[in-house]
Computed example of a mutant assay.
Amino acid sequence: MRGREVGDGAAARLHLVDGVALLRPDEQVFQAMLNGWRNQQLARNLAFSTIEQRERTVRAFVDYTNAFPWDWTPQFADEWFADLRAIRHCARSTLRSYQDALRSFGDYVTSSAYEWPAECERRFGTFPVPVIHDGNAAVHVQEIEASPTKRAFTVEELQAFFDYADDQVLKARGAGRKGWLPAFRDATLFKSAYAYGLRRNEARMLDTVDFGRNPHEPKFGEFGRVRVRFGKAKKGSPPKQRTVMTVVPLWSVLVVQEWVETVRPLLAVEGNSALWPSERGPRIGLARIDRRFATYRDALGLDPGLDFHSLRRSYATYLIEDGYDPLFVQFQLGHEHASTTSLYTCVSSDFRVRTMRRALGQAVNAALNVKGSI
């Protein structure tokens, strides 16, 4: 029999056979839509993780509505997002990402370029319509939408957190448990993330070869800088890379050096270059990092608003308080705009008081000098 192809190549190349009906036309057409949409997103150079997350969102919407795209209406979307907000209390950023996924999928299946409207009308007597539009889409009006509970560590909290992490290593090793190696790894990971202002995945994806010398600061030896190769990427772009200079006290270098040269070889298998190897795989997972962090934080009774990203917030805050140029801090964090860096700085009240006193002192001295010259 001769095959017939529906739509063009970008329409998922849904192959039909003349004279033979699809066994489950609704499910098969929907899957073909997803396949074509995936190809379209790959052509746009979007990350695989983004594409997979979007597909999960569309499938979740199908499960909620018990309907396929050619039967969707905007009211279905309104009800779903009302449920997500009122019942499940999803974050604003999460809802907007879901809406972006549905809008992108809707743009694909309603486009005449891919011929899905005509195909659906022929098969099901109806056709897809956009369910996300300007009237029901959340607007991104602020540059940052993190919960107000998210903040940097205080100096005392940070010291307590690191001390507790070290204590877990000593307890495990003193008891003769093998768990002291992962505990040592995680404690060093947390300290390194703070010492270099790293995001969670940036820290996780480091390799031992990413450290190097800074000729202007020879005291740091082979750990004078770190090359971040998996920085936060824009949509459709590869990971953004940057080099972060070692600027915090020497203790951070000694911690990483001890891990790389003495402890890590006891955990990593030969040929694995990951800086933070897992006990069961080549590299520690993000979920494991989150669990360990939450366990230590909760054991100390610290604010639930403190998360892994608080280490990065603390790094930015303390650099500003120590007098580093804001532009340098911006480069260290890998921010494209200074306004983004400003959102990460949570300067302490003591710093504000010192700054205010310095400004008032300068103003008073200037006034006295003017008065003395009259």
Rank of each mutant, 00 (worst) to 15 (best):
F328K: 07
Q330G: 05
W180V: 09
A60W: 03
L368D: 01
R291S: 06
L311V: 15
D63M: 07
R288C: 00
L189R: 07
V353A: 14
G125R: 08
G372T: 08
A172H: 09
F328N: 02
S111Y: 13
Q28D: 11
A91T: 12
G305K: 08
L311E: 14
A138Q: 06
W276C: 00
W259T: 01
D26T: 14
L250V: 15
V263F: 15
W259H: 10
V228W: 00
V226I: 00
S49H: 07
G9E: 14
S373C: 04
T345Q: 10
D107M: 11
T94A: 12
R200F: 03
R297H: 09
R213A: 07
W70F: 13
P239T: 00
A287K: 04
L206E: 02
T341I: 07
H15Y: 11
A366H: 13
L16I: 03
V255H: 08
V244R: 02
F211A: 00
V260R: 01
V364T: 11
C90N: 12
G197I: 01
P282S: 09
R123Y: 01
S112H: 13
F331V: 14
G323M: 09
W116P: 05
A91D: 02
V370A: 09
F162H: 04
M33A: 05
Q241L: 12
P277I: 03
T340V: 04
G174Q: 05
R225W: 02
R85I: 06
T246A: 14
W70R: 04
F61T: 04
M356Y: 15
R173Y: 07
V255D: 12
A274C: 06
Q41D: 08
F161H: 07
A101P: 06
V247G: 06
V17H: 15
P249N: 15
P249C: 02
R185D: 01
F328T: 10
G7L: 00
N45A: 15
G221M: 05
L327D: 03
A193L: 07
V155C: 13
S111G: 11
P238Y: 02
P148A: 10
G305N: 12
P25V: 04
L306G: 02
K235S: 14
L46W: 11
L42V: 10
F220Q: 02
E79K: 11
R227K: 01
R13S: 02
D322R: 15
R204W: 03
P218C: 08
P130Q: 14
F105M: 04
W70Y: 09
A233C: 07
F331Q: 13
C346K: 15
P74G: 04
P265W: 08
E279F: 06
G212K: 06
K232Q: 11
V141T: 09
R122E: 06
G174Y: 05
L267E: 03
K171S: 00
D350A: 09
E119D: 05
L360D: 08
R242Y: 08
F127T: 04
E5P: 01
I132T: 01
D350C: 02
E52Q: 10
R103Q: 04
G281E: 15
D167A: 03
R358L: 10
D166V: 05
W72H: 12
F105R: 02
V228H: 00
H309C: 00
L198Y: 05
